[in-house]
Design a protein around this nucleic acid. Structure first.
Lengths: 225, 225
DNA sequence: TACCTTTGCGTAATAAAAACGCAAATCATG
DNA sequence: CATGATTTGCGTTTTTATTACGCAAAGGTA
């Protein structure tokens, strides 16, 4: 039979307080024992790829994923020192409330790392991270996937700060708001953000996925820069 | 060992006379014997994925590929009736002069099909085709990859017709020209298209890849709609 | 009450896109 | 060899989108 092994890896992003995080697990066994790595593992024979990623994530991190898409397949010979392993990488997003990491079964430790302060990573996972970050940044500009990183109800300022930190640039608050709201995919609620923060409490918004899909069907395209 | 087999498939596009073509091979053996399918096959144990696609393409079609990128990995259980096969699909572009198909070794027949008149395809290749077409159309708008489908020297009208046929919409010739040339990635040559066609012969242009990469590095982004 | 911060709504200046006009170069045709 | 058909090449005007700001309102804090 084929001696090529098939695996999946997951790059899971989380966002909170103007910081972008990624979930990593500390490896229990060689190779790279004790190093941080992306959660992932081998695909079972009768298992779909997406099912495999979700299973690994559940087993290793207990994370409840909110958005998941295939990223890229990394298949260079030699990327695993043991033998030929081809890995289909997925990238996922979680909401702030799902940040808490549950008991891990397979991996020794799980933790969220600020993407700006990553430890050395096992295998070619640094390369995978870079690809994932590129995809996240690019996609943010032409699909409203950033909303998967916020609570279901959020003040508008949160969304603006999310774009600003992930795209790593200043954004004019007023123009950003006008442009985003003009798409009509956010519902303005009759609730206000609790005034724990300083400043005037803002109205809460929620993503109207139905309206977004309808607009997309019509060919109207989302774009934020 | 793993009973999952790893394969690659190639979706190769060609363009000529306002028509978009794709290369297909007729299957020699079951399953789907006698049906048209995408060129492809199993990855060898010590072979990189891109090497595998290129080898298969050479063996099955003799096509000289000009541009190649990974498209998506199709891994649903049951997509191959025999056993579990996960396929990493690539999509490629060839120039008109490379259209001629050479002797095939592995496959019975190779042919170019107009994407608008495709025969029934084996496996889940119809789905792969759809994904590839989507990617080509999307990418055309934010990267000048369409130039890989034209001769190295081409009259501007060819480029406009290429966009018009692949994106399947009318384009204002004058605005398109202005916008495309403004990027400064095309060199205007001192040659003219041979006046075999009717109408005024146009100047020939060529793609200045160096200039394009320089601009991309600066963060200036290409966009055509 | 004064001050700081953030929200929410607006307007003016600037840049980009879309719509359209028209002459020049070539070929086919009578 | 003049006429029409076709395609190129270079404009202008109108419309739309983006960018750059101004400023009052609503909350907390001192």
């Amino acid at each position: 039979m084929s001696k090529i092994k098939l695996a999946t890896d997951a790059i899971v992003f989380g966002y909170q307080h103007s910081q972008l995080f990624v979930a990593l697990v500390k490896r229990k066994y060689p190779p790279f024992k004790g190093q941080w790595a992306l959660p992932g593992g081998f695909v079972l024979e009768n298992e779909n790829l997406e099912t495999a990623v979700k299973r690994e994530l559940r087993e290793e991190t207990g994370i409840h994923i909110n958005y998941l898409e295939q990223l890229y397949t990394f298949g260079e010979t030699g990327r695993d020192p043991r033998r030929r392993v081809v890995s289909v990488a997925y990238f996922g997003l979680v909401r702030p409330k799902d940040f808490k990491i549950k008991a891990a079964t397979d991996a020794a430790e799980v933790a969220w790392f600020d993407v700006k302060k990553l430890p050395p990573l096992a295998f070619d996972h640094k390369k995978i991270m870079k690809t994932a970050l590129g995809r996240l940044r690019a996609k943010l500009t032409y699909q409203p996937i950033g909303l998967n990183l916020l609570d279901k109800k959020f003040p508008f300022g949160d969304l603006e700060r999310l774009y600003s930190t992930i795209l790593d640039k200043k954004i004019d608050r007023r123009n950003f708001r006008k442009k985003f709201l003009k798409f009509g995919i956010l519902d303005e609620l009759d609730e206000y953000a609790s005034a724990i923060d300083k400043g005037r409490p803002g109205k809460l918004f929620s993503f109207d996925k139905r309206k977004y899909n309808a607009l997309r069907k019509e060919g109207i395209l989302f774009e934020i820069r």
